[in-house]
Structures are given as structure tokens and as C-alpha cells.
Design a binder for these strands. Structure first.
Length: 336
DNA sequence: GAGCACCTGGCG
DNA sequence: CGCCAGGTGCTC
């Protein structure tokens, strides 16, 4: 489920906690979360233990950890993290690790301050009370132990996400490869992903021209991660609503001005979402502290079938296209 | 491009 | 029971 703003919230939360730390242990509770790893669960452990995290980078919805050997040299492989539909990374200081995992009784101490994730102070919420039925810790799949006694937990209800290592390759345009990346290297498994709309190196007019060369529905083009990345079902619908465009309009039918406007709407709506910690409807998406973002209350289209459009009052509609819901205003968003 | 596979749930 | 869910990758 997490789209670009949600993954960026995780990237910002993870960096201050993990960069500079050495991975001292890897506990794989469900090997399916490591199924993309060459060599499987034991391969992942071998690749990670003893390495030091030097940066957390992100392109689109793909997040990766840059790793160095004890001598400080880059290992040449990144730890990839994809959250899929339901993945979370949660950081736990030593004292916050559940009691049954604590090495010694009585080790519990007041929790350290959580990492800053750039949420405005007035939007911070208390940690959710975790009921047994929806307890995300139930879906803990992989735990990374760091050398300061803390852990990073990968939690994933639906198992579409995962952790695996991927060798670094050079970005073909020679520019800094991604947000948070120190250089032009990126994992091979992210090399087919286009730059996202937050990326300084993304050329929106060029992406607009590429959209206009395709006859596919504009929404499916926005969701195709090899044209422009980071956009998922929620923000595609929100951007199309903001730009007054119909999801089924063929790319070829758009003027350059309209195609460019849609891309700028994607960037604008995702920037507003990032500023309030992303979108979450429930405990399934949370930041590294386990807290939810606040953009769900700002959604204009997604999930609002039957509700009045805030611009014109017309009841919003829902259509299913290639298995995914499209929410839109039938009056403001005309097919042209 | 569409369709399905990969999964575990919550809800009606 | 059937339908729904924030994603991606592979096949036709």
C-alpha cells in the first residue's frame, strides 16, 4: 500500500537510527519475506552480518540501504526493502523490544526518544494501542539487530514485500541515483524503475511527452513505474481529480499542457501528503515509530464513492479497471 | 495491455 | 461465502 510519500516517511525515519550502525544479527522468522534473496534466508544473513549502514536511499517505492565492510569500503551490494501492500519497518530501541525477547529480566529501561520523521509537532499522535486481533507485531517477518542493542523489524501482513540484497550498478544518466543516495549507484533490482516526481533529475516535460506517445489510459501510465515512479492507486486518483482528468483518457489524447499538469498534480498531492506523514487508514501503514500519517482526511476522491465532489457536489463514482478501483468525479473529470 | 500469481486478513 | 485492500512481476 505504501506509495512514495509513505516510503519517504520511512526513509527519513530510518536514516537517523540506522546510518552508522553495524548489523550484528539477522533473524528471519518467515523465509517468504526473503524469497527474492539469492541463497535464501541464510544468504541474506551472510550478506548483512558485519556490514555497516552508510546511507538510506529511495527511488519511487523502492528503498535501499547502502552497506560498507568493516574497512569502510562499499560492499557493492545494497539491502533492498520493498513494503509491498502491507510492509512496515519499525525501529525499536533496546528497551522497546518486547519483553519476551529481552535477554535479561529487569533490563527494561525508559524508551529512548523516537527518531524524528519531520512530522509537525501538532500532528503527532500517541502510539496506537495494539489490540490482539490487529497487532502488527503478529506479522513480524525479519528482525535486524544493530550494534547499539536496537532492532529494525520488518513487519508484513500480506507478504508482498521483502528484504534482499542487490548488486550496485551505475545510473545510466550519471546523475545522483536517488533521494538519499551519495552517488550515481543504484541496486540492479531498482534500475528499471524510473525517477520519481520528487527527484530533481526527473524531467516532467519529457515524461509528459512519453505519456503522449502511448495510447494506454493515463491512469495506467501513471501507475507504470518504468515511466514515472512512486505513484500508486491512491495518489493517481487524487492527482487526476486535482487536474480534472479522467482516468481512462488515452495518453495520446492529452495535450502537452494537460499531461504536464497531471504530473505536477502528482507531485503536489504527494508533497502535501508527505508534509503530514503520509496516508493511512488503519494500523497497516505506519512510520518507523508505529504512528500513522494524517493525509487520509484530505483525500478528495480515493475511497469516496457516492460522496459529493468538493468542487461541484456531484456524487463521486467508482469504476474497476484492470482489477483496481478508480474513484473520480463524473462531472469535473471528463474523458477527452 | 490484460490477467493472474503472490499472500493475509477485514467486512458484509 | 464472496468481495475488498495502499504493489509488482511474469505470462499471454
Amino acid at each position: 500500500m505504501p506509495e512514495l510519500p509513505e516510503v519517504e516517511v520511512v526513509r527519513r525515519g530510518l536514516g537517523p537510527h540506522a546510518v552508522g550502525r553495524t548489523i550484528i544479527g539477522v533473524e528471519i522468522r518467515d523465509p517468504r519475506s526473503a524469497r527474492r534473496q539469492a541463497g535464501g534466508a541464510s544468504g541474506l544473513e551472510q550478506m548483512l552480518v558485519g556490514t555497516t549502514v552508510t546511507a538510506i536511499a529511495r527511488r519511487g517505492k523502492f528503498l535501499w540501504w547502502r552497506l560498507a565492510d568493516p574497512d569502510g569500503a562499499d560492499t557493492g551490494h545494497a539491502l533492498m526493502t520493498h513494503l509491498g501492500m502491507s510492509g512496515q519497518l519499525r525501529v525499536r530501541s533496546r528497551a522497546a523490544v518486547p519483553a519476551h525477547d529481552a535477554a535479561s529480566p529487569g533490563a527494561a529501561a525508559p524508551d529512548a526518544a523516537p527518531p524524528d520523521v519531520d512530522l509537525p509537532a501538532d500532528l503527532r499522535a500517541p502510539a496506537p494501542s495494539e489490540g490482539p486481533a490487529s497487532d502488527p507485531v503478529r506479522h513480524l517477518r525479519i528482525r535486524l539487530a544493530l550494534d547499539d542493542g536496537s532492532h529494525v523489524d520488518f513487519i508484513d501482513q500480506r507478504l508482498f514485500g521483502g528484504l534482499w540484497t542487490s548488486p550496485l550498478v551505475t545510473a545510466d544518466d550519471g546523475r545522483t541515483s536517488a533521494w538519499g543516495s551519495p552517488d550515481d549507484l543504484l541496486p540492479r533490482d531498482a534500475a528499471h524503475i524510473a525517477r520519481d516526481v520528487f527527484d530533481d533529475a526527473a524531467d516532467l516535460p519529457a515524461i509528459a511527452r512519453a505519456i503522449r506517445r502511448r495510447r494506454a489510459p493515463v491512469k495506467s501510465l501513471l501507475l507504470a513505474q518504468d515511466l514515472v515512479s512512486g505513484i500508486g492507486n491512491i495518489y493517481a486518483d487524487e492527482a487526476l481529480w486535482a487536474a480534472r482528468a479522467h482516468h481512462a483518457t488515452p495518453g495520446q489524447a492529452l495535450s502537452q499542457v494537460r499531461a504536464h499538469r497531471i504530473l505536477r498534480a502528482c507531485r503536489a498531492v504527494m508533497e502535501r501528503a508527505l508534509a503530514v506523514g503520509g496516508t493511512s487508514f488503519d494500523a497497516l501503514y505506519v512510520n518507523v515509530d508505529g504512528r500513522s500519517g494524517y493525509f487520509a482526511r484530505s483525500l478528495e476522491a480515493y475511497g469516496r464513492e457516492g460522496e459529493p465532489c468538493s468542487r461541484c457536489g456531484t456524487a463521486l463514482r467508482r469504476q474497476v479497471r484492470s482489477g483496481r478501483s478508480c474513484f473520480f468525479c463524473p462531472r469535473c473529470q471528463r474523458r477527452r
